[in-house]
């Protein structure tokens, strides 16, 4: 286990019908790294993230998670996936936070958090509840323990979603535009929680439009456009002097 990359994706190709959304995207990510994936909408950044944990399937390419092969291209150039149980086992190491939270509306905040540890990991309620409560305290929502999601603000929902993902003790956290569905005044609380995670050396891959967060928290920035990685550099460098004309144009638009 010496310095195996957490995620190693090479040459990912994905098309929806005639629309080629990923044209050979590669990424290597090491433990504790925080990478921000930015780019205009339709650039393929969300699809890229969703391919990594099997929410979308790739057409060609190779994905390795902590050294285990999730998918690889066969001799015929077609992507082949590991057996279903293996895919599930590998993907469980990645937690994911969605733009639209995807909390379970029929369960309280606490039930949302303990559902997967009990159903998937077979943990006992007694073992998981104190842990869930600690996670709720960490995201600052202890008071909402028994509330239903409908009662929460968007920012609170997203913090519950983060706690829910963390309850499965993932090695990697994927964030798919976690603040894009939030009112501007609510993004801060979610970004603070994510910053705290980064400080605890969680490995994080974050698709985001929050340039401030990308600049201050990410170690590396990946700029994607039209299904390709256009530029990939340390965050400070990228924001100080983006090298590619398309990155420059994008940043000028955003800032």
């Amino acid at each position: 286990m010496t310095n195996k990359p957490m995620i190693k994706a090479s040459g990912l190709h994905k098309r929806f019908g005639h629309n080629e959304v990923l044209k050979g995207v590669s990424l290597e990510m090491s433990k504790g790294e925080v990478i921000a994936v930015i780019g205009p909408s339709g650039s393929g950044k969300s699809t890229f993230l969703r391919c990594l944990n099997h929410l979308e399937t790739i057409d060609a390419g190779r994905i390795e998670i902590e050294g285990d092969v999730l998918a690889d291209t066969d001799a015929g150039g077609q992507a082949r996936y590991a057996p279903e149980a293996e895919v599930r086992r590998i993907c469980r190491r990645m937690g994911m936070v969605f733009q639209h939270f995807n909390l379970f509306p029929h369960m309280t905040v606490l039930q949302n958090i303990i559902e997967a540890p009990i159903t998937v990991k077979g943990m006992s309620r007694d073992a998981i509840i104190p842990k869930a409560e600690a996670l709720l305290a960490k995201v600052g929502l202890s008071a909402k323990r028994d509330a239903y999601p409908a009662r929460l603000s968007g920012g609170q929902k997203q913090r519950v979603a983060i706690a829910r993902a963390l309850a499965m003790e993932p090695d990697i956290m994927l964030f798919d535009e976690p603040t894009s569905a939030l009112d501007p005044e609510l993004t801060g609380e979610v970004l603070r929680t994510m910053r705290q995670l980064a400080e605890e050396h969680m490995t994080m891959l974050v698709v985001t439009h929050e340039m401030g967060f990308a600049r201050e928290v990410a170690n590396r920035v990946i700029f994607m456009d039209q299904g390709e990685i256009v530029e990939e550099r340390p965050a400070a460098e990228f924001f100080a002097s983006p090298a590619h004309p398309r990155s420059r144009a994008f940043l000028d638009n955003m800032l």
Partner: peptide, 8 residues
């Protein structure tokens, strides 16, 4: 999708 990424 929420359920799938949790491993259900």
């Amino acid at each position: 999708e929420g359920a799938k990424v949790l491993g259900l």
